[in-house]
């Protein structure tokens, strides 16, 4: 990969994010590390509560300050560390260099302001554009995200748009200032499949047109296969497997990844038989010691329940790393802490 030679745009190093529940701090992320290059899409995939959204909110600096904190680690973005950055400095970054889109566009759009006004807002705030100039730029954005008859719909309100069109408006808002990084948190989960396919195509197209890096959060492995360059599978607050998308689907190695793939009833072939993963994700306050997946794992050995394995490269493919002492015994010291 040519991108590997230049410095990554975003680098997470041992990120630990904690939440306070019942008077004690519990780690929702426990040492998440990854690097993301320009024009690269990393998919964060996992089930509810695995830490995908917390990762994105940590990067955006949008964690609720009252009951959460970044306890350790660094978030290096374009040369500077975002951890500990002032709220004012973060506000200059958000919507400007880093943008985020969410699952439910209606809850992130203001219902009493017109769509056009909201798209122009970040141009006014970050670029100091005014009046007709802001309106023209916003209209161009709505055209770019392929809203039909954008000029007529500029002064419509969000409730007059369908779900797919609202998500396009969100994308236009997020991309207004040509961010270097887009965080997309389940952006197509609430959409019908044909509309999902349209929005995925739009995101892929705009990403390469802008040379943007994208973190795409989803629980849908089918969507991952369609949009990602690289994949990180998360479980209980940690990355348990990461690889290039082709490699991951060709050789799923962590027992959790493997099991997840077997739980999906496929559209394109008859399922030989569905396999369920027994049990459920443990709650933050009652994480098992050792490997967090051990209680649900078919390959569990006694040692798994005692020591938490590190993310270790596979002998055959250094770029494919797996957190499992059965499948990927750490022969040498792991490259990342």
């Amino acid at each position: 990969m040519s991108a590997a030679t230049e410095a990554p745009l975003l680098e997470l190093d041992g990120l630990v994010t904690e939440f306070r529940t019942g008077g004690a701090w519990h780690a929702a992320l426990r040492g998440v590390s990854f690097a993301l290059a320009r024009n690269e899409t990393l998919a964060l995939v996992g089930e509810s509560g695995c830490g995908k959204s917390v990762t994105a909110l940590s990067i955006m600096g949008l964690l609720p300050p009252a009951n959460s904190r970044i306890a350790a680690g660094r978030i290096r973005f374009a040369g500077r560390d975002l951890v500990g950055l002032s709220e004012e400095a973060m506000r200059k970054l958000r919507g400007n260099e880093i943008s985020m889109i969410f699952q439910e566009p209606m809850t992130s759009l203001n219902p009493v302001l017109t769509v056009g006004f909201q798209v122009a807002e970040s141009l006014r705030y970050h670029r100091g554009m005014e009046g007709q100039a802001a309106r023209r730029a916003a209209l161009e954005l709505l055209d770019q995200v392929k809203i039909p008859a954008a000029a007529q719909r500029f002064d419509d309100y969000p409730h007059q748009f369908s779900g797919g069109m609202r998500q396009r408006v969100m994308i236009a808002m997020a991309l207004a200032c040509r961010p270097k990084l887009l965080l997309a948190d389940e952006p197509t989960t609430a959409l019908d499949v044909t509309i999902q396919a349209q929005v995925l195509a739009l995101l892929a197209e705009l990403k390469s047109a802008y040379g943007m890096a994208m973190i795409f959060i989803t629980h849908n492995l089918g969507v991952v296969a369609s949009i990602a360059d690289r994949v990180a599978v998360m479980y209980a607050g940690a990355i348990v497997e990461t690889a290039a998308v082709d490699e991951l689907f060709a050789r799923p190695t962590h027992p959790y990844t493997e099991a997840l793939l077997r739980t999906i009833p496929r559209v394109d072939e008859d399922s030989a038989g569905l396999a369920a993963i027994p049990g459920q994700v443990p709650p933050l306050s009652a994480m098992p010691p050792g490997c967090r997946f051990a209680p649900r794992c078919a390959l569990r050995e006694a040692e798994c329940e005692a020591t938490d394995p590190a993310l270790a490269p596979l002998p055959a493919a250094a770029d494919h790393r797996v957190r499992c002492r059965v499948r990927a015994p750490a022969t040498a010291a792991p490259r990342h802490a």
Binding site: V193, Q196, A197, L261, D268
Partner: peptide, 16 residues
């Protein structure tokens, strides 16, 4: 349009 977990069979995105 239904995504399948196989990167060699990406969803037919653009034709819709």
């Amino acid at each position: 349009a239904s995504p399948v977990p196989d990167p060699t069979r990406k969803v037919a995105m653009l034709r819709i």
